[in-house]
Design a protein around this nucleic acid. Structure first.
Lengths: 338, 338
DNA sequence: TAGCAAAATTGAAAGGTTTCAATTCGCTGT
DNA sequence: ACAGCGAATTGAAACCTTTCAATTTTGCTA
């Protein structure tokens, strides 16, 4: 049913080893032999078994991509970058949604170990890389995605979230807002933490007060809930910086529903600059992260480590975010909100 | 470096075959032996090589998921369903974005063949399943995702797009709009075609005229462009049914930018009911597809075919869409638009 | 306690590739 | 014509499981 190298060898009238060389080291087989093998391959429609190759090699040209949630447009873009880099290098990507649950993450890491994957790209669900160490000692090239907490034992690719936080805060401060709120997500997410650090830095340096709200998740619905709660208590200042774009969209939704206008009454800043931000009903001012590039770079890193582990030295690649100003932010209103 | 069954066998003082049985057929090994093997497995931290298993079996517990674009929230949700079903059954998902390009699709199909994947879930970039036949004859279980054009040679899981189109059209007709427009995507996309069929059916049955616009892609940006062009020519009726939610968001954006209101001046209906639709600045009326369930069902189908190909008969599973009414649609305005 | 069936275990083959030491081939220079 | 040499090719081992026929052990019965 499935055609193997043996069939090719038989048809071409050469040995197994020669077929293998024709495929992988063409320079060491005579041109006429090469042609015969090529013809046999074509005639039989032969595609070598990656499985067998991997068994021999001990590790697979496979990248395990472990992300909290592929439904988050940020990770979707990252995944595209990873996938493109992988395809170019003949790697394949296994998709693993951890849902931020350590248990599910562990499950996947075990699966990836069983697959003997050559590389892992992960945004860990929790601090530390202990569950990864087993994989690493088994020879997998690991890189941390958008997370550099774990230090220098592995590669990491991230965006400077502290800077991003500063940029967002500085933008509303520059617009003249005399106070603003920070809509954080779950505080145990490192990215959220770093953005908050940047925001506090900017606030402290300029003396502008910042209040803090917490959304239960990084989702539109959680943003709606958080802002509606705040509106009910009547404390919302004239500008709001959100931990990501989804929360920002939720905030806009809640504000419009309350009969207020964006940006005339409240300015909103998002974070991530997802695709949709540019064309939302109210185009969103946001901190852009080079998402695709992040994924692409991360994949290249592990692919190169895979290619020559000895020559590899772990790197911490860090991208710079930038603020993209659109219609959801504007000058501070003259009067205080009701 | 990597620990194999041989190591386990040695430590437990049994043969290879016994270890294998202990792992896969525990009922046929004596309890005390089982315990010894289990202890050795635990002590050595042994995880069996999926690669070796696959080589022996001739096919891998792997699902190749080939979609046009994982960045489209529809497919993201589908992917989640596929992934969950896969994980439960001990399968792994390889992510393949075809970008609707036949060439890239072919590339991936070859990769999947090399991997000897046991199953393929695909939304084909073009009609017919000729490029798939090789995979099928190699024993892969194939199911068509959201596409049933190819007939009865394979399983398929889809949503009744014709019905969906009818529902969308009927909704605006019920609201009293005396005419409406259909914003289609690329006409060679089967789903778009079927939705259009449903729309025409409803229009014909009720005698309400429908005009047709075409967006170059199924994206927000393309929606903006298409509607702005139409607005410039001044022909936009008071209701607009869009081929998917992204186009609908683009339409809303263009309409708001033109100084019109949604739904007071123009009602907008989307299609897919992506996550974001419920919480957009203007919550979107949309035709809901059971996306997650679609993916989950499709994965179960191929997994079951994989498990017992002989007992399997190809099925065409078809889900029913339903319309979800939100704030982007309202009664027809009394006056004609300027 | 011999004899037997059932239960448990073993050992070797197979699956498709890569690798590498060993062999053969084709020439060159003498 | 032939030694010597590099180039091309071969054959077998190794990678890690699963499978299954063959063998050994166990637990009974007569």
């Amino acid at each position: 049913m499935t055609v193997s190298m043996k069939d090719v060898a038989a048809l071409a009238g050469v040995s197994l080893g020669t077929v293998s060389n024709a495929l992988n080291n063409p320079h060491m087989v005579a041109p006429k032999t090469l042609a015969r093998v090529a013809k046999a391959v074509a005639d039989l429609d032969f595609v070598p078994s990656a499985t067998a190759r991997q068994l021999r090699a001990g590790r697979a040209k496979v990248i395990g991509l472990v992300v909290p949630d592929i439904a988050n447009p940020f990770f979707t873009e990252v995944a595209r970058g990873v996938e493109d880099a992988a395809l170019e290098a003949g790697f394949v990507v296994i998709l693993c949604n951890s849902d931020e649950q350590a248990e599910r993450e562990d499950r996947y890491l075990e699966v990836l170990q069983a697959q003997r994957v050559g590389a892992i790209l992960i945004t860990p669900a929790r601090q530390g890389l202990s569950p990864l160490s087993r994989l690493i000692s088994n020879g997998a090239a690991v890189a941390l995605l958008d997370n550099e907490t774990a230090g220098q034992d592995v590669c990491s690719v991230s965006v400077d979230d502290t800077l991003g936080g500063r940029l967002a805060a500085q933008h509303v401060i520059d617009l003249g807002h005399s106070a603003f709120a920070w809509l954080a997500g779950p505080t145990d997410i490192p990215q959220v933490h770093d953005r908050e650090t940047g925001i506090h830095q900017a606030a402290r340096e300029t003396g502008v007060p910042v209040t803090r709200m917490i959304a239960s998740q990084m989702s539109v619905a959680a943003g709606v809930t958080a802002v509606e709660t705040e509106l009910a208590s009547g404390h919302l200042p004239s500008a709001l910086v959100c931990a990501n774009d989804l929360l920002a969209f939720g905030a806009i939704r809640a504000i419009l529903r309350a009969g207020l206008r964006v940006p005339q009454d409240v300015s909103i800043v998002g974070y991530d600059d997802i695709d949709f931000a540019a064309n939302a009903a109210v185009p969103l001012t946001s901190v852009r992260q080079p998402k695709y590039e992040l994924g692409y770079a991360a994949a290249q890193l592990v692919i190169s480590e895979w290619g020559d582990p000895a020559a590899h030295s772990h790197q911490q690649v860090r991208f710079e975010p930038q603020i993209v100003v659109r219609e959801s932010t504007g000058p501070a209103p003259l009067a205080t909100l009701p």
